[in-house]
């Protein structure tokens, strides 16, 4: 299948991209890696009149340090995030999660910012960003604003990015040396998460001192497991103790029921995967 016809612009700066978005009216789409958008256009589930491609804006690509933050450009492809030494050092959880996204070809094209802007509830980068307290930098004609992860993900496929705005970068507070694990459950290769658990933690002598935990695909937006985080602090990393600390992790969640499993099944999965994820992270 071939997309419906559209006008195409490939700006080389954020300012130019914002101007093009402003001039293009309502029916315009931003194109990043195209790994979600192009399949949608091919199936004609969307048929924008104008496409603004961010692929030639070099300033949006790459990983850098800025004081206490690790800054990841929106157009950094998944495979670069997954192999970046700064990410490994300061936000290992992002590396672990990014490695599970799709397949190698999709990871060569798909971008960090694209996956987050797309905000598929089954997407694997949302929960890790929430667990790490990431901040989202959004540029618009009126200037730039920064949105906390908890406010960025608003609903199913809906974020704080407004029409005419662009996600430029994500600022992740450094979690230097924290251990991490992303436990993803899917039925076959190259698949989206049925449920997944993102964990990053610090431990000393077999005891967990601090943990951050978030859930993928257990609702319309990623969920931070604050109670489990508190219960894990000071706990010995043994199967029994960890199972007890995360036993209530699915309480109050309203996960979807679909062909992959109903809500009860997902709640059960979440508790099992959380135990595995914490134990794997604690190593």
């Amino acid at each position: 299948m071939i997309p419906a016809a559209f006008d195409y612009h490939a700006p080389t700066s954020v300012e130019e991209a914002l101007r093009l978005l402003a001039e293009s009216g309502d029916d315009v789409k931003v194109l990043a890696g195209g790994q979600s958008l192009l399949p949608v256009l091919k199936l004609r589930l969307a048929a924008p009149e104008v496409v603004v491609d961010l692929g030639r804006i070099d300033a949006l690509r790459g990983v850098r340090e800025d004081g206490e933050a690790l800054v990841i450009g929106a157009m950094t492809p998944h495979h670069e995030v997954a192999s970046d030494p700064l990410v490994q050092q300061h936000a290992l959880l992002l590396r672990e999660a990014t490695r599970t996204v799709a397949d190698p070809q999709v990871r060569h094209r798909g971008t960090f910012g694209g996956a987050l802007a797309h905000a598929d509830p089954a997407g694997d980068l949302l929960a890790p960003c929430l667990a790490l307290d990431a901040e989202f930098v959004i540029a618009g004609q009126g200037g730039t604003r920064t949105v906390a992860a908890a406010d960025f993900f608003q609903d199913y496929f809906t974020t704080a990015i407004d029409d005419g705005e662009i996600l430029t970068e994500v600022r992740v507070p450094k979690h230097t040396g924290w251990r991490a694990h992303y436990e993803k459950f899917s039925r076959v290769a190259q698949q989206w998460s049925i449920v997944a658990i993102a964990v990053t933690l610090r431990s000393e002598g077999g005891t967990i001192s601090e943990a951050r935990v978030a859930l993928t695909n257990m609702g319309t937006v990623p969920i931070r497991a604050t109670a489990a985080e508190q219960a894990l602090a000071g706990v010995a990393a043994t199967p029994e103790a960890v199972a007890q600390a995360v036993a209530g992790i699915a309480e109050g969640t309203e996960p979807p029921s679909d062909l992959n499993g109903d809500a009860d099944y997902r709640r059960h999965l979440a508790t099992v995967l959380a135990r595995r994820a914490v134990l794997a992270a604690a190593g």
């Binding site: 195209g34 491609d53 495979h79 397949d103 190698p104 999709v106």
Partner: peptide, 21 residues
């Protein structure tokens, strides 16, 4: 993946890249 080619040395699915890109 039947359509896989290399773009600047890395594998991509050429059905999900625009020629203009």
């Amino acid at each position: 993946g039947a359509c896989t080619v290399h773009l600047d040395g890395r594998s991509v699915k050429s059905c999900t890249v625009l020629a203009v890109q």
